[in-house]
């Protein structure tokens, strides 16, 4: 997603416009030429993105189970939502999941990028291997990881036993289930994010590092004073897209824990799914969707503010 473009649209290279505004017949001709190109995707955007947003807003004011006729209930769905412990708990679980996911995943990605950001043989191979999980079906990999986290037959506990530790039943334990699910996402997306950091690092002029070395800056100082500040646009992109994705985690949770044990991994997306499509409470599910939408927009906005207030050094 390219959220930066929404706030700071770059001046785009326009095809030169004719000096005077085109006449009416010309405008009509332009429209007719463009119509077959634009109309299919416009139909898609309107029917499957804009209309649904309107419908979800409308549905949030009704009580409905997909079958009987909908019943207008005013703000009641929103009011019950603020009182409903499930929703609040689901948001907390989601936040907890994001905390297990994002910092570690970003740190690993950054570390991998530092390792691979040099000119040496065979690094392309390693880069590809680190990205491989990103391409794999989340449902299928969740099955494989469920097996590896299994209390009796799983790899993790077999490995722990080698050093004399009896590991827990990771996915059956309320304390360990959520971190375990988050580890799967970290594994799956660390390499993917590494690619963005690598691309960002390659735009940093080597002369900066040379100058710093001459001034006696240590490798750590060069990283914190040159690499990190100059990477902040990349960092913003990675954090915004990852946090948005992380808030919507579903596939892994569905396969590995079904929201359990108890409600230990009942993330908001899972709560919306079970409210809407298991309990057929359409109105509440719509209200929760809007809540999630609001939370994501707010966090995105905060991230933009945070990064805008920090100095970034323009290097051209």
């Amino acid at each position: 997603m390219h959220l930066t473009d929404l706030r700071h649209p770059r001046p785009t290279r326009e095809t030169p416009r004719p000096p005077s505004a085109p006449s009416r017949p010309a405008r009509l001709r332009h429209l007719l030429t463009a119509a077959p190109f634009v109309l299919p995707s416009l139909a898609g955007v309107v029917l499957f993105l804009l209309v649904p947003v309107v419908i979800v807003l409308v549905l949030s004011f009704f009580r409905w189970n997909f079958l009987q006729s909908p019943q207008w209930v005013g703000f009641s769905n929103f009011v019950t939502m603020t009182r409903d412990d499930h929703v609040f708990h689901a948001l907390l679980v989601t936040a907890y999941y994001v905390l297990w996911n994002i910092p570690l995943q970003t740190a690993i990605a950054l570390g991998l990028a530092v390792l691979l950001n040099r000119r040496m043989p065979a690094l392309g191979l390693f880069r590809a291997l680190y990205v491989l999980p990103y391409m794999s079906t989340p449902v299928a990999m969740a099955v494989v990881w469920s097996w590896m986290f299994n209390g009796q037959t799983g790899l993790i506990n077999h490995l722990l036993l080698l050093v004399g530790i009896h590991g827990p039943d990771w996915l059956g334990n309320a304390q360990t289930a959520l971190p375990a699910v988050a580890m799967v996402s970290n594994w799956q997306y660390a390499g993917y994010n590494m690619l963005f950091f690598l691309a960002g690092m390659q735009t940093i002029p080597p002369a900066l590092y040379e100058a710093a070395s001459i001034d006696g800056a240590s490798a750590f100082r060069r990283f914190t004073r040159i690499t990190l500040p100059l990477l902040s646009p990349t960092m913003l992109f990675v954090l915004v897209t990852d946090v948005i994705g992380s808030f919507q985690i579903f596939d892994t949770v569905y396969v590995m824990t079904q929201g359990g044990p108890g409600s230990a991994t009942n993330v908001i997306n899972y709560q919306i799914y079970s409210t809407g499509f298991r309990n057929f409470d359409v109105g509440s599910a719509s209200a929760m969707s809007l809540l999630l939408f609001g939370v994501i927009l707010t966090i995105t906005f905060i991230q933009f503010r945070f990064f805008r207030n920090r100095t970034t050094y323009e290097v051209s």
Partner: peptide, 13 residues
């Protein structure tokens, strides 16, 4: 529309 999370559209779709 890039800002609209996938899950928001599922119930209406």
């Amino acid at each position: 529309t890039l800002m609209v999370p996938n899950v928001v559209t599922l119930v209406p779709l």
